[in-house]
Amino acid sequence: MKLQHALGGLEGLDTITPEIEVFVEPWEKRIFGIHTAMMALSNHLDTSIPDYAIDDVPTTFKSFWTWGHLRQGAEGMHPFEYFRLRYYEKWLGGISGFFVSEGYITQEELDARTAEFLEDSTAAAAPLPSGGAPAIDDQVVKYLKEGDSPMRPLEAPPKFSLGEQVKIKIVSPGAHSRLPGNLQGRVATVVKVYEGAFTYFFPTADGIGVPMPVYSLAFQPEDLWDESLIEPDSVYYNDIFEVYIEAA
């Protein structure tokens, strides 16, 4: 992951104060719901596990959208903007940009609607439209219950085994990565080889996207951080795709 998305290797950061409330503003519930509906109506679900009859759902949303796309949009932000904006503000920007890029709305329409909300803050709390297609609601509920599994049959045996020393590759993250940057080049011990193979929603420049083994790796904290930052007798664990690992 790029710098602003994996802070575990950085020093001198201010104390992080977590939000007590899950949703701070009413509109945040809506953007969460929109993202959930987009995942539930994504056009890739006809090949997912479990299989969904997504072509039979009467929705005008015909795009490919997953958690991975949401994260990719956030990783594409300027680091200063990433730290300036709150959590769901990043979601709002990424999803809005996606709808513009996919042609569902124009930038002019988005700007005009944004201006309306800025002039009247109560507009964002207006009741949602009613009378949607029940089949769409059913699909969203089904997706919430059954999800979209990353597990696939294992086609080749894992390259590494329990107890083996391995090294994390140094790779360019490209547009999107699932490898924390501060682990690159570090040595770890395999403490678990997960059963089966795991895929990712779409291919990335650094190698994930096809089914592969995933390992739980144990890192010694002194290999990652300054001694003053380490808790005594601690161990750091991380689950890593096989493509990011090489023999030590």
Rank of each mutant, 00 (worst) to 15 (best):
V141M: 13
F219M: 07
T106V: 01
P50Y: 02
S101F: 02
E116V: 15
G12L: 00
Q72G: 06
T66V: 07
V243L: 00
P213S: 06
V24D: 09
F99C: 04
W67M: 11
G132T: 05
P58M: 10
D137N: 11
S42M: 08
F32R: 10
A197N: 05
W67R: 08
T47Y: 12
A123K: 09
I105N: 02
I20A: 14
E25D: 14
T15P: 03
L45F: 14
K145W: 02
S63D: 14
S48N: 06
E164Q: 15
P221K: 12
P180G: 05
L85A: 06
K62G: 14
I31T: 03
P213Q: 00
F219A: 10
R84D: 13
A205C: 06
Y236V: 15
N238D: 10
P221F: 15
A218E: 12
E155S: 15
R30P: 00
T122H: 06
M77D: 01
V140E: 04
P79Q: 04
L154A: 09
I49A: 11
E19A: 14
T60D: 15
G93E: 06
D233L: 12
G196T: 07
S228Y: 05
E11L: 08
E25H: 13
R113T: 14
E19K: 12
P232T: 10
T66F: 06
E19R: 14
E89N: 06
F117N: 10
F99R: 03
L45T: 10
S177V: 01
Q107T: 04
K2W: 08
Q139V: 14
L92F: 11
V140A: 08
G76K: 00
R113G: 06
L41F: 13
S149T: 13
P50C: 01
K192I: 05
G94S: 09
L217N: 01
R71Q: 13
Y104L: 10
W27E: 13
A40W: 07
W91D: 12
V140Q: 06
Y237G: 08
A188I: 03
I245L: 01
V57H: 08
S101D: 15
F117R: 05
G185P: 03
I208G: 00
